[in-house]
């Protein structure tokens, strides 16, 4: 089940981020990167593979956790060359996709590290050259 309005919103965020990244002012470019990283994270989360509606947290304590998602067959042996589930027809999962969430969680933290680093870089550039204009910087560097 897709969500057309969410897709539209993500697309608009992408557009705004792109516009900002193309600016001459370094600080504006960093703000643009921030907008872009939000857009990317949302994009990944919204394209999860399942149409379930529950948060990916197993609530029952029962045995092997197979009550919510059953009947996959795993042939995870390298010698057979298969490392993926094989599903019966009509297999349904109640959860939303946990994998994309795990990926995005990593991405959020890394984008924080990146933002911090380039902000300090911008600050040092300003200190050394007295400007945040890319064009002027190129001229100063010769």
């Amino acid at each position: 089940m897709n969500n057309t309005l969410l897709s539209l919103t993500i697309a608009i965020l992408f557009g705004i981020g792109t516009f900002l990244v193309l600016r001459r002012d370094i600080v504006r470019m960093i703000i643009g990167l921030g907008v872009l990283s939000h857009a990317v994270n949302l994009l990944i989360v919204s394209t999860g593979a399942f149409s379930g509606t529950k948060a990916p947290i197993i609530t029952d304590n029962g045995g092997h956790g197979l009550s919510e998602a059953s009947s996959s067959v795993f042939a995870d042996s390298l010698s057979d060359g298969i490392f993926a589930p094989v599903l019966e027809a009509g297999h349904q999962v109640d959860f939303v996709d946990p994998l994309v969430q795990a990926l995005v969680l990593t991405a959020i933290v890394i984008s924080l590290a990146m933002t911090a680093f380039i902000l300090i870089l911008a600050y040092r550039i300003y200190e050394e050259y007295g400007t945040t204009d890319i064009k002027e910087l190129r001229r100063l560097r010769g």
Partner: peptide, 25 residues
């Protein structure tokens, strides 16, 4: 087929965690 099926099914038996996202991480 999404590899997520694997994580959903094996999270509890292999890693003993209920929160699948945490277990993946």
């Amino acid at each position: 087929e999404s590899v997520s099926h694997y994580f959903i099914e094996k999270s509890l038996p292999l890693a003993g965690g209920h929160n699948i996202v945490n277990v993946i991480l």
